[in-house]
Design a protein around this nucleic acid. Structure first.
Lengths: 150, 150
DNA sequence: TTCGTTGCAAAGCTTTTGCACGAAT
DNA sequence: ATTCGTGCAAAAGCTTTGCAACGAA
């Protein structure tokens, strides 16, 4: 099923309305090419000529989190605010490699990790739902520049 | 080296003072038996008769993050605020298994994951620093209670 | 004595909420 | 016609900061 349809279906199931704002916000999220925060999303929507309010963005993101289509990630060991969001369907795995020098984020796909999660939960009698791996490492460019992290 | 000494050494290196507040906050962190937030730490310190201010706690946590002795983790896919902290030295791995039913957190140790991270970063030319894996799963108790997550 | 540190209160930010108007069904 | 959603502005919460008093070296 198309991911848009999944969202529409979720709204219908909860007796919620298919508004233009929700459609546009979701479309914008699909257009994002990297994990994004509220301001990035708002800026993109403004660029597209939409006049969605920040409040509606927050409300829609909350909705999407509840639908399971969206998730939040924290990219820095110290990140407390400026939550970053990422579409669940967009990446095969929920795993990111974060450069501790420049902050660049790239997705990683590794069947091994899924298997490890399955093994761990199975051993402990848990029912696996999802996982998120963050690897912090210095990218080749930053190494070349001689950037060091504390 | 003792972990307390590492903190004291870090302070010395930066020309910072060994105050009672910092010592007590660090001691309290050592006493924590699970990832904690600022309020939990403050409550514990009050219980111990300390009258440390919230501002000092924030300042000291920041310091500890910079020293590399402490790290933050986000436990829920939707957690945006109420940052949780965890001592780096306390757990062998930075990996947690989070119950999506009751929110209970337990530590996991799995050599496999470290190996996966090494492989991934090596392949891409990154220099590995650390990683954090969060697995979201339903614990046996919640399964028994018939709790379901969205 | 000399700075760094603390506590308090105020300021700063992000996120949430109340309410009246507007839109979807 | 109803009911839900939106925008605005205000409120709420967490975190940071300025400043005078305090304490470690």
């Amino acid at each position: 099923m198309e991911i848009q349809q999944q969202f529409e279906q979720f709204l219908s199931q909860r007796g919620m309305k298919h508004t233009n704002e929700r459609r546009e916000i979701f479309r914008a999220i699909l257009d994002m090419d990297a994990p994004f925060d509220v301001d990035k999303l708002l800026f993109y929507l403004k660029q597209q000529g939409e006049k969605t309010s920040k409040a509606t963005i927050y409300r829609t993101l909350q909705l999407l989190l509840e639908s399971g289509l969206l998730r939040t990630i924290s990219l820095s060991p110290a990140a407390a605010r400026d939550t970053l969001y990422s579409l669940c369907g967009k990446y095969r795995a929920y795993d990111h490699l974060v450069c501790t020098g420049c902050g660049k984020v790239r997705d990683i796909e590794k069947q091994q990790i899924c298997l490890s999660c399955q093994t761990i939960t199975k051993e402990l009698g848990y029912k696996l739902e999802s996982h998120s791996l963050r690897i912090f490492a210095l990218c080749p460019e930053c190494q070349a520049k001689g950037i060091k992290t504390c």
